[in-house]
Design a protein around this nucleic acid. Sequence first.
DNA 1: TGTACATCAGTGAACGCGCGTTCACTGATGTAC
DNA 2: TGTACATCAGTGAACGCGCGTTCACTGATGTAC
Lengths: 210, 210
Amino acid sequence: VEGKKRLTKGQRTKREILNVAKRLFLSQGYTATSMRQIAQAAGITPAAIYIHFQGKEEIFTTLLGEAAPFEIIKNLFETIVAQNTEILIEDTLLRLIDVLFGHEDYLRLALIDVQERNSASIVTYLPEIFPVGLAYHQRLQSFEKGESWLRDLSPFLFMRALMSLISGYILTDYVIRSVTTVQLPEIDWIGGLVDIFLHGVLKPPEIGVR
Amino acid sequence: VEGKKRLTKGQRTKREILNVAKRLFLSQGYTATSMRQIAQAAGITPAAIYIHFQGKEEIFTTLLGEAAPFEIIKNLFETIVAQNTEILIEDTLLRLIDVLFGHEDYLRLALIDVQERNSASIVTYLPEIFPVGLAYHQRLQSFEKGESWLRDLSPFLFMRALMSLISGYILTDYVIRSVTTVQLPEIDWIGGLVDIFLHGVLKPPEIGVR
DNA sequence: TGTACATCAGTGAACGCGCGTTCACTGATGTAC
DNA sequence: TGTACATCAGTGAACGCGCGTTCACTGATGTAC
């Protein structure tokens, strides 16, 4: 009945090592975090870590593997439906940002990986995510043209614009959160950015003509 | 006449230290780069570094200070002119991306700073750049309304959308450059992204009405 | 239920090594008379 | 032009320290008969 709690002592320790290591890596980076720090935070000696992991390297890669939300994202793109293009894109972006912020740790770990370990972990997943994006773009194009519909854009450009929006939002979010000197008004940022993505910042040149 | 080359031996060594340190920090990160590595690459002993800098810390902050292009960006926003809103925004973005890619090292150093040193160096400049952005937005709004003009957006939202576009473009550029498995078509990425920023990804809902 | 043995999950000390920084010293260059 | 001295730009050895990892050992727990 307690099911989930039926872990051996070893498994619980391994879990604890991963938890504290994640916290330390995120706050200090990979190189600056030592095995002794991890051991102390987990309440064991450094040598005990080597019972559960081959070394520091394996702790980090295990964390990266656990944190990656690629399956969820893939599933999101493949199954999402809506009544027209506009709402579909809007929904997709809102949910995508939701997923990514629910896995914010992954974003930061991946950034550490790229920065300190010359390894682009995202890159290994990218060939997998690519066809998903292209299929999604095709679905967008096949909508009835009575409602608002997609402009004739290169699918690659569309995908990159989408990725730029997401990563740009996340990056500016980091910056904004660390600024305490400037007081920003309360704005529905995501809604606003998605709106700009859909309709642009300009009004159409002339009214009633075009 | 040779003017620029009239440096003392000490000044030349200091310059050399900065050059090699920059290269090492960018490729390995801050913590993973040692003073011995810097000294060896500069052709001196570690102790000699302390003649020119107080320590490792000062080398890094000096590099950050030298690399920051904030004055150029400020100047860009304040002096740029064009015949209408659309062209002005387009020009601004193209030049902004140009400046930032000309100072790509700064972007990476700033990222290292945020990641490994818990210090947001951008943040110290932000209060300075803020009024510049607001003034720019006001200029955009004051254009004659005969041509294409700006939608009625919050200036803060507009600025963030602009920052998102820029940082998103740069981030996706990193990723794309490290992917060698997928062959991408040749596209005018910047032009395409700016176009989407201006007009959105959707066609207007109905033709001839609105 | 009791005993013998294997496995599990650790400890504590040590390995060799590289870290950032300091310090006493040194030869070359510049300056004053 | 020659000499005395100060400053510049380093060297080489050492400081104490923390790093990732290994190794011999140990007590607790699980299993077999």
